[in-house]
Design a protein around this nucleic acid. Structure first.
Lengths: 351, 351
DNA sequence: ACAATTTTTTGGAGCGCTCCAAGTTTTTTA
DNA sequence: TAAAAAACTTGGAGCGCTCCAAAAAATTGT
C-alpha cells in the first residue's frame, strides 16, 4: 500500500538541518536539546509525518524487546489461557507487572511441536513457563540464554521456579473433610495428554498415575497423608484424570465413584464442572456431595454454592513471576503459601 | 549474569571457516548449502552454543515483527480481556489466526493515557482495536502507518472495520419477546467511563445516553425499532448503563425497573450478572423475568437457564480481524450477521 | 577581551542479520 | 580435455537506531 518509505531520524535531521543524534535526543532526552532546535526538529518531524524512533532500530541497538513471553501449559496454547479461570488470573497478574515495568505481554503460541522454534524466535526478553515444564522445553529456554521462571514445577536449584505449597493445601482439604465426618472420597486429577478421562479405581493395582504434572503429584501426596491420618489409604480412593476443561469430568466422577461423599479436585475449573453436572443430575451440593476446589479463583466465590477451595494468590504469583524475569537475578525457588477457604460446597456427609 | 557475549553468525562462520552468509543459509535455506559444509557449520554452532539467528537482527533487516497487537477496549486493559466472556473468545479467534500465520499475539496494555505511546512503540506489524475507538487513538494508529482493524466501530470507508449487525439482532430480540407477549422492558446498556451504574428512567427527559460506544447506539436503535412495532417508545423504557463487569448491574435493574417483565442486555456478561442476582433474590428466570443476552458466548449456553442471546461468531470475528491485518489490503468494512438463539431464559410473561 | 568553563551538537561505530550481485568451485556436455 | 552450465559461497550494503567521545558553541569569570 504505502509505497513511500517511512521517514527516519536522518530524514528529519536533514529537513531540520541537524544531525541524527540531535533528532534522537529530541525524542529520547529532550532536556539535552536547546529549545529552539527542539522546536525546529519537532516541526520537521510533523512535516514529514515522523512519529518517533522506529522500534525496530531501537531493538537492535538496545538489545531489548521490553516484552515477556508467557508459555501456556498443555497442548491447547492460548485456548486454555482463556478458558481456565486459574490461567486467566495468572495472565492478569503477569500483565499487571508488565504494565508497571512498561513491558508488553506476548502470548507464546504453538503446539508442543512448534513451541521450541517459537521459543527460539520470540521477540521477548524472558519467559514465564506454565506448569508443563518438560526437559526439552527447558533445554531450549536455556539455549536462548534468557531469564525464565517455571511455575508449579521444580526444575532444580539453578532454575527460577514458583510453586504453591500444594501438599499442605491438599492435606488441609482432607483434614477439613475428615473433621466434617467424611470417609469416602474421590479425586479428580489432571490428565496431561489429550483424550477422555482415565479412571483409576481401587483394585486396579498397580495404579499408574505417574504421567501427570508435578503439581498433581504433590497434591496427591498431601491427600495421601491426610487419608493416612484417617487410617485410610489413597490406594482405596478412586482417582480420575481429566484433561483441563474436559466437560465430562463431573459426569465421570458421579458415574464411576458413586459411593463417594466428597470430591477433591485439582482446580476450581474441575470443581465447577462437577457443580454443573450435579445441577444437571439434581444432586444437591453440598447436601448430597461435598466438593473441594483448588486455586481460589474469583469464579470459585461466585458459584452456587460458593466453593470450598485451597486458595493461592494467583495474581500475585503471576506478578512475582514477571518480576523475577525482569530482575534476572540469581536463580531462586519460591514457595507460595496456600489457605483453605471453607465455603458452601462442603458440609457433613448425609447420614 | 551471563557476561560472555552471545555468539553471532560471524562467530560461527569464523569457527567453521565459512562466511556469515553461509551460516545464515544453513539456518534459513539449508538446501542451498553443500551438506559437508552444512554439517561443519552445525558442529561449530553447537560448539559455540549458537541457537540460531538472533531475532533482533532479523527484525531490523526484515522490517517485520511477525506479531499483532490487540488493544482492548475500555480502561481496564488486559483485565477486561480476561474477565469478559466476549473478549476471551475474541482473543481466542485472534490467537488462532496468529498461530496459522506463525505470528505472535501481543496484548497491548496501558491505560488510556499511556496507550498512545504504547501504540507508537509496540513491536507489532499491525493492530486490532477493541470497540472503544476514539479519534486520538485512531490518529496515532494512522501515524504509525501499520495496518489495523477496528471492531464494532465504523471509522469511515478508509479504515478497516468489522461489526456485527447489532441493530438486526436487537430487533430480533424485541420481536421474540413481543411474540411471547412481553410489553414491559428494561435495557442494560454499557457505560463507557468507570463508576456506578447510571439509571435513565422514563420521564427523566431528555435522556442523555449518547456517551457510550457505537455498539450500544446501534443496538438501542434496533430496540427502539422493535418497540415501535409494538406501539411503544424506547423513551418509556428504563435504560441502565453499567461498566463492563460491574457486578451490581443485576441488582440495579431489579431495584430500579421492577415493573419490567423482560431485561435486554448488551452482552452475555451483563445477562449473567442478572442471572446471578436473580438467584440471590430468588427470582426465577424465566418464570418471573425473561433475560436476553448478547454475543452468544460459550458461557451463555452453560448458565442456568441457558441464555436466550443474540449470537455472533466471535471467534470468527477475531480470526477475520487478524487475517485482515496480515493481508494489509484495501480498507474494508465487514458486517457480520447475527442470529437470535432462543433458549431457556425467555418465556411468556406471568399473568 | 580573552581564557576557562559549561552547555550543546555532531557523526562514527556498531548492534546481528539477510539479500544479492559477483565470484568461485564443481559438474556436465561436446 | 576444454568450454559451458550449474551449483555453491562470499562479503559488501544497509535496515534505523543510540551511545559516546570529541568538536563546537555559548556562557561565565576575571
Amino acid at each position: 500500500m504505502n509505497v513511500s518509505k517511512m521517514p527516519t531520524l536522518a530524514d528529519v535531521g536533514r529537513v531540520a538541518g541537524v544531525s541524527r543524534g540531535t533528532v534522537s535526543n529530541v525524542f529520547n532526552h529532550p532536556d539535552l536539546v536547546r529549545s529552539d532546535l527542539r522546536q525546529r526538529v519537532e516541526a520537521a518531524a510533523r512535516q514529514l509525518g515522523y512519529d518517533g524512533p522506529d522500534p525496530r532500530g531501537r531493538v537492535l541497538r538496545d538489545g531489548k524487546f521490553h516484552a515477556i513471553g508467557l508459555i501456556p501449559p498443555g497442548a491447547y496454547a492460548i485456548a486454555d489461557m482463556i478458558r481456565s479461570p486459574y490461567l486467566r488470573e495468572l495472565v492478569l497478574g503477569v500483565s499487571l507487572a508488565c504494565d508497571e515495568a512498561g513491558a508488553t505481554l506476548s502470548l507464546v503460541n504453538g503446539t508442543d511441536e512448534t513451541r521450541i522454534s517459537t521459543i527460539r524466535e520470540a521477540l521477548v526478553d524472558g519467559f514465564i513457563l506454565g506448569h508443563s515444564a518438560d526437559i526439552e522445553l527447558i533445554a531450549s529456554l536455556r539455549r536462548r540464554r534468557l531469564p525464565f521462571v517455571i511455575l508449579e514445577s521444580d526444575a532444580g536449584p539453578d532454575v527460577n521456579s514458583i510453586r504453591i505449597d500444594g501438599r499442605s493445601g491438599a492435606l488441609a482439604a482432607i483434614r477439613h473433610l475428615a473433621a466434617l465426618g467424611h470417609q469416602r472420597f474421590a479425586i479428580l486429577s489432571i490428565r496431561r495428554t489429550s483424550g477422555p478421562p482415565i479412571v483409576h479405581l481401587p483394585g486396579n493395582a498397580p495404579r499408574a498415575i505417574s504421567a501427570g504434572f508435578q503439581l498433581d503429584h504433590e497434591r496427591l501426596f498431601g491427600f495421601a497423608q491426610g487419608l493416612a491420618e484417617l487410617g485410610l489409604s489413597i490406594d482405596n480412593v478412586p482417582i480420575i484424570e481429566t484433561t483441563p476443561g474436559e466437560p465430562s469430568a463431573g459426569a465421570v466422577v458421579f458415574d464411576r465413584a458413586p459411593q463417594a461423599t466428597a470430591i477433591l479436585t485439582m482446580s476450581d475449573w474441575q470443581a465447577i464442572t462437577v457443580l454443573d453436572e450435579a445441577r444437571r443430575r439434581n444432586i444437591k451440593i453440598p447436601e448430597h456431595m461435598s466438593v473441594v476446589g483448588f486455586d481460589g479463583t474469583a469464579e470459585s466465590s461466585r458459584t452456587t454454592p460458593p466453593l470450598t477451595t485451597v486458595a493461592q494468590d494467583i495474581v500475585g504469583k503471576g506478578r512475582l513471576a514477571a518480576t523475577m524475569v525482569f530482575a534476572n537475578g540469581a536463580p531462586n525457588q519460591v514457595i507460595i503459601p496456600v489457605e483453605l477457604l471453607v465455603r458452601g460446597s462442603t458440609t457433613r456427609p448425609r447420614g
